[in-house]
Computed example of a mutant assay.
Amino acid sequence: MDDYPLLNLFWTMLLVFLWVLWFFLLFKVISDIFRDHSLGGWAKAGWLIFVIVLPYLGVLVYLIARGPGMGRRDAKQMKESEAAFRSYVQEAAGSGGGSADQLGKLAALKNKGDITQEEYDRAKAKLLA
């Protein structure tokens, strides 16, 4: 440990951190290129080649040119994902207006005399179908 001082250890840790940060940023930019629906196929291919062939310059130029839109696309994707999740949960759990609840309401209407037995049977068959 004498031949590797503490300052060199700190420098190495900083470089590893920056290296990991760089790859995160590179993958973020590449995923944003593919996620953007306003870009055509040739524009996506051009940005991708630019980012891969000249990675530092490509990512810097992409962030300057299209950086503000990245946040909007992230927010839009998060809202769409959340809406899809909520829709799935409501569909899976039922929103309180399930068949059993509606059959109970129909039975209550029949018992009060508001609908006839025939109307009840038709509505029940329609619900169960």
Rank of each mutant, 00 (worst) to 15 (best):
residue 92 A to I: 00
residue 96 G to R: 06
residue 43 A to R: 15
residue 56 Y to W: 08
residue 19 W to R: 08
residue 15 L to P: 01
residue 10 F to S: 14
residue 80 E to G: 03
residue 25 L to H: 13
residue 4 Y to P: 10
residue 59 V to N: 04
residue 78 M to P: 00
residue 1 M to H: 13
residue 55 P to V: 03
residue 8 N to F: 14
residue 69 G to H: 13
residue 106 L to E: 10
residue 92 A to T: 10
residue 48 L to W: 07
residue 25 L to E: 06
residue 32 D to W: 12
residue 72 R to T: 09
residue 71 G to W: 00
residue 1 M to F: 13
residue 92 A to H: 02
residue 73 R to H: 11
residue 56 Y to P: 07
residue 54 L to R: 14
residue 14 L to F: 05
residue 86 R to I: 01
residue 99 S to Q: 10
residue 21 L to V: 06
residue 46 G to M: 13
residue 119 E to V: 09
residue 111 N to E: 15
residue 86 R to V: 06
residue 124 K to A: 11
residue 68 P to K: 06
residue 121 D to S: 03
residue 36 D to L: 05
residue 108 A to Q: 10
residue 34 F to Y: 15
residue 89 V to Q: 08
residue 9 L to C: 00
residue 87 S to E: 15
residue 108 A to R: 06
residue 94 G to A: 10
residue 14 L to T: 09
residue 19 W to N: 03
residue 119 E to Q: 11
residue 52 I to K: 04
residue 49 I to F: 15
residue 57 L to S: 06
residue 67 G to P: 07
residue 91 E to Y: 01
residue 91 E to P: 02
residue 24 F to L: 12
residue 117 Q to H: 05
residue 27 F to Q: 14
residue 112 K to R: 12
residue 43 A to C: 03
residue 84 A to C: 01
residue 36 D to S: 15
residue 21 L to T: 11
residue 2 D to Q: 06
residue 98 G to N: 10
residue 76 K to W: 01
residue 120 Y to C: 10
residue 117 Q to W: 01
residue 28 K to V: 15
residue 28 K to H: 15
residue 101 D to C: 03
residue 49 I to S: 11
residue 30 I to C: 14
residue 31 S to A: 08
residue 15 L to Q: 00
residue 19 W to Q: 03
residue 10 F to A: 11
residue 107 A to Q: 12
residue 38 S to H: 08
residue 34 F to H: 10
residue 28 K to Q: 05
residue 82 E to M: 07
residue 105 K to F: 07
residue 88 Y to S: 01
residue 72 R to P: 00
residue 118 E to F: 09
residue 56 Y to Q: 06
residue 34 F to I: 01
residue 78 M to C: 09
residue 25 L to F: 13
residue 32 D to P: 00
residue 89 V to S: 08
residue 38 S to T: 09
residue 58 G to A: 05
residue 80 E to S: 12
residue 20 V to I: 12
residue 129 A to F: 04
residue 61 V to C: 05
residue 57 L to T: 02
residue 46 G to W: 14
residue 58 G to P: 01
residue 65 A to E: 05
residue 59 V to M: 12
residue 99 S to D: 14
residue 95 S to H: 07
residue 4 Y to H: 12
residue 55 P to T: 03
residue 118 E to G: 02
residue 121 D to A: 10
residue 72 R to G: 14
residue 110 K to D: 01
residue 78 M to E: 13
residue 6 L to P: 04
residue 72 R to W: 14
residue 38 S to V: 02
residue 7 L to V: 08
residue 106 L to N: 03
residue 12 T to Q: 15
residue 47 W to T: 07
residue 100 A to C: 04
residue 27 F to H: 12
residue 57 L to Y: 11
residue 97 G to K: 09
residue 102 Q to T: 05
residue 115 I to Q: 02
residue 117 Q to T: 09
residue 111 N to F: 00
residue 64 I to G: 02
residue 99 S to Y: 08
residue 5 P to D: 10
residue 11 W to S: 13
residue 55 P to Q: 10
residue 97 G to F: 09
residue 82 E to Y: 02
residue 36 D to Q: 11
residue 81 S to M: 07
residue 80 E to R: 06
residue 113 G to E: 11
residue 51 V to G: 04
residue 66 R to F: 08
